[in-house]
């Protein structure tokens, strides 16, 4: 093997050593690596680490004071509002995850396996846009559509139909969360289905599998990692979301994200907000590991 054919193998064997000193060789990667490493440590890793540390601190006279105190954890974890919010948030996130997977899969299946390459490209471009365009505005738009004096109800009134109570329930909450999750989940599933070996589908039919059997025995198992990623993403987005529960259900009942924002914005109980945040991260990490374990390729017994 020439060194050129394996460019990623090692620093020592890739670029020429200039005049050959080790320092000259190390200069470029250091120059490139240090800023980004420092940046991510300073503004991502350390803040999160600090968040963990703060969970053990105390509040004295409305000021944070370093300490090692498990009282915050005890207080939060045993408090009824937290437990209620935790169960509710997990429930909401699970429902939104299942809904978005169920709604996205048929679409992704059609986009990846039925549409022409051109139409597929357009769909992918269309689905990417909402992922990177203002979510808060879209939540507001749903408020406009669903509120008592909003578009649906004024439309119903025009037709002489009675008004519907749409805002402030499971329906409006899920509409908001689906706005967040559906485009991403559809994209992930579309890419997963595009990436699978399509001859497996033909092979399965050739071996006697009906359409339903092809789906359950071949297509779904073949994209298991993609299903896992899509599920985790949907769960993560809806579990941590703030805007939909606030503006589409009026914070009633509150989710964990709402508890955090309220606690932080009210100013005094930083350690407790941190406990909630760290607990949320722990739950997300757990969910991630669990899904990983479930969707990993089967190992030989």
């Amino acid at each position: 093997m020439t060194e050129a054919s394996l460019p990623e193998i090692s620093a020592a064997s890739s670029p020429p050593g200039g005049r050959g000193t080790r320092r000259a060789r190390a200069a470029l990667p250091l120059l490139l690596g240090l800023p980004v490493a420092l940046w991510q440590v300073a503004f991502f890793v350390l803040p999160l680490a600090f968040l963990v540390v703060v969970t053990f601190w105390k509040v004295r006279n409305f000021r944070l004071a370093p300490a090692f105190d498990l009282a915050n954890w005890e207080k939060v974890l045993t408090s009824t509002p937290f437990q209620r919010a935790l169960v509710y948030t997990a429930e909401v996130a699970l429902v939104a995850t299942v809904l978005s997977m169920l709604l996205a899969f048929p679409a992704a299946h059609a986009i990846a396996l039925r549409l022409s390459a051109r139409a597929r490209g357009r769909w992918i471009a269309f689905l990417i846009i909402p992922v990177f365009s203002s979510y808060i505005l879209k939540v507001y738009a749903w408020q406009v559509v669903l509120s008592p004096g909003g578009l649906v109800n004024t439309g119903l009134a025009l037709l002489g139909l009675p008004a519907a109570d749409l805002l402030g329930g499971t329906l409006s909450l899920n509409i908001g969360l689906l706005t967040l999750t559906l485009p991403v989940v559809t994209l992930i599933l579309t890419f997963a289905l595009m990436g699978m070996d399509h001859s497996l589908i033909e092979a399965a039919r050739n071996l006697g599998a009906s359409k339903v059997q092809v789906l359950t025995q071949v297509t779904l198992p073949a994209i298991k990692p993609g299903l896992g990623l899509a599920g985790v993403t949907a769960f993560l987005l809806s579990f941590g979301d703030y805007a939909s529960p606030v503006f589409l259900t009026g914070s009633n009942p509150p989710t964990l994200a709402i508890l955090i924002v309220d606690t932080v914005k009210s100013g005094s109980q930083w350690p407790r907000a941190s406990v909630i945040g760290v607990s949320m991260l722990a739950i997300l990490a757990l969910a991630f590991v669990l899904v990983q374990a479930l969707t990993q390729k089967r190992k030989t017994r």
Binding site: D197, L200, A203, V218, A222, K297
Partner: peptide, 10 residues
């Protein structure tokens, strides 16, 4: 099949 099309997850 030329590609064999064996199911990798089985």
């Amino acid at each position: 099949w030329q590609s064999l099309a064996l199911f990798p997850f089985l």
